[in-house]
Design a protein around this nucleic acid. Structure first.
Lengths: 208, 208
DNA sequence: CATACTTTTGACCACCTGGTTAAACCAAAT
DNA sequence: ATTTGGTTTAACCAGGTGGTCAAAAGTATG
């Protein structure tokens, strides 16, 4: 326990997040992590064996946060519309405050596929069950037949993509970071609106 | 003109695409490019000054393809619904055959922001005009008021994200590459359906 | 054949990076 | 004060990287 009420190990982990999140595995430098933590480079190796294992800690922490919340929402006993709204609200909010996370996770998976296998088991996550649950609940409560996997991926797409495309939007639209922040803010209402409208468009959607 | 009816320079450029597309700038190795082209590493530097300029060629080629087609569709004089359908059809098709491109471009922009500035000028691309055009045409032909920028980003999200999330989908759902191909195939009908349904959900959409 | 020019190559280098190691430091217990 | 254990550091190393260079090979021109 020293500076800032954190142990050295905690300081190193925090620094690792900061660096890995923005630079990715290949782009991150052990030296930069050490500097960020205000610590000698060897000390990083002392607490975490090597870059790989340090990255694993950071990656699983990030992915775990997102996965946990997702399960929580979709296995709750809210009506499906409320689940969708809750899910979107949480993710759009969380991502707005952690706009580097989507890139970090997807890039990490691109550089090191197989990173997930082990974690998925450990968390005993069953995507198929979640997908089935959505399908049944949509059919029961809204009386419409959708492909739940595509629908779920659609929700993720609309939530996550704009954060992945951050540098693209900045360049192409010539936005300032502030304007981009405003844009993300707007999406908190635009995305749910778009998705719920899409559902209404299917056959047999109950009127009122 | 030698092997395969290509000049050495063309062979190097083709090899560069193959390597950069899958590995990104940081991950690519000049040696791997040389091997892929069946050529000495020094020769790569002979034709293209350095890694940076070689990457630039590859990047602008990829980005140009996507941008050109986008302009072509949205500045045509098709009705808006047809434009949307054409756009989605083209992108979902093109991306299914070049599934690495979205990651390559977004990752390239993340590693080297500013890569676009110059290209945007040179192509005299005006995103604001495209966005306005969508807004006006939607209002006129469909009698509904949408935010065109969010709508456009929604289209991109639904088209592109599943390709960025490729390693995620493979891991989490345990899909084989073939099953994933099938999934992308399905999206060619699911995505247009979803988007057109969403439009119908807005107030005043003309019935029939 | 001789000359001049371009293309191709192998050897090499300076630099950076993750990782190791032995010594120094330090706090607590004897 | 001395010992003991964990903690922190500086110096160092092996391997890989983009890039250079001078010589060799090839090709056209006189």
């Amino acid at each position: 326990m020293d500076k800032n009420n954190q142990t050295t190990e905690e300081r190193i982990l925090a620094a690792s997040k900061k660096v890995f999140h923005t630079r990715g595995f290949d782009g991150a430098r052990m030296q930069e992590i050490a500097n960020e933590a205000g610590v000698n480079k060897s000390l990083v190796h002392y607490y975490f064996r090597n870059k790989e294992s340090l990255f694993k800690s950071v990656f699983e922490d990030a992915f775990g946060q997102l996965l946990t919340k997702m399960n929580e929402v979709f296995f709750s006993d809210l009506p499906i519309i409320a689940k969708i709204e809750t899910f979107l609200h949480f993710y759009l909010d969380f991502l707005a405050m952690n706009s580097y996370l989507p890139w970090f996770i997807l890039n990490g998976l691109h550089e090191r596929p197989g990173q997930l296998k082990e974690l998925m088991d450990r968390m005993q996550m069953s995507p198929q069950r979640l997908i089935n649950r959505i399908h049944d609940q949509v059919k029961e409560e809204l009386n419409i037949e959708i492909d739940p996997l595509h629908f779920f991926i659609n929700m993720l797409s609309l939530s996550i993509f704009p954060f992945l495309a951050r540098p693209l939007i900045l360049s192409v639209l010539g936005y300032s970071p502030e304007m981009l922040g405003q844009f993300y803010e707007e999406r908190k209402t635009k995305v749910p609106e778009f998705i719920l409208n899409a559902l209404k468009g299917y056959e047999n959607y109950p009127s009122k």
